[in-house]
Amino acid sequence: MIRARHVTKFFNRGEVNEVLALREVSLTVNEGDFITVIGSNGAGKSTFLNALAGVFPIEEGSISVADQDVTTWPEHRRAAFLGRVFQDPLLGTCPHATIEQNLALASRRGKRRGLKRGVRKADRALFREKLSMLGLGLEDRLTDATGLLSGGQRQAMTMLMATLVRPKVLLLDEHTAALDPKTAVQIMQLTDELVRSERLTTLMVTHNMAQAIEYGNRLVMFHQGRVILDVSGEEKAGLGIQDLLERFHELGGDGCVSDRALLG
């Protein structure tokens, strides 16, 4: 579904503080894959996700989504293929727009926006139905300003919005890292439910090794801008945190695994 070939990304190229964030990363994401992406701080996992989403241009390499070469496409154009949820729960929704307006904005992802009514009657019925799946009571608050909701509620809405128009690939960028532990678990369960029931191809970046092991059918580890581990199927299913740490050190990890990665 996604084919990244030799993707190289520098930050501040040609300056003293030049950083090589991605070194010729190649990764093929197959349809139906639920890949968890882990790595220490600065390993390049979020950079890779942003490169796929087109947040910035890449220096070298190519990216194709659904057999379309999107390497030169701007972010808003790639959005037609991608559903995204960010780490910051406030980034995924418009605070001043109502709940139904936010969902309506998401329901036109990848489509032309014209002078038709933004929120239609038929939409409202659909939104109510979808929101009731969250179990947060938001289906009765369609016209409330989204800014009134908690971070967890807004992240749950963002999950819904990312999948309202079926994405070719769902990109989750540490989307539970900024939530309190209880809410993080709820959002993770919601994620798993949505991904399974809709059979979504998903890439999930996480800091949390336990999460990376528990969910998904494939695990990819980044280190210093490279993919150093890519396991799937049986091998992934049998993986424990201790194994993962050992593999990490074996493969050239320098031991800087944070407490957060272990305990988070």
Binding site: E75, H76, L91, T93, C94, P95, H96, Q101, G110, M161
Partner: peptide, 14 residues
């Protein structure tokens, strides 16, 4: 409205 409110969100919505 969304562009003024949250440009990153509306970019991600295409």
């Amino acid at each position: 409205l969304a562009t003024g409110d949250n440009p990153r969100m509306i970019t991600a919505q295409g």
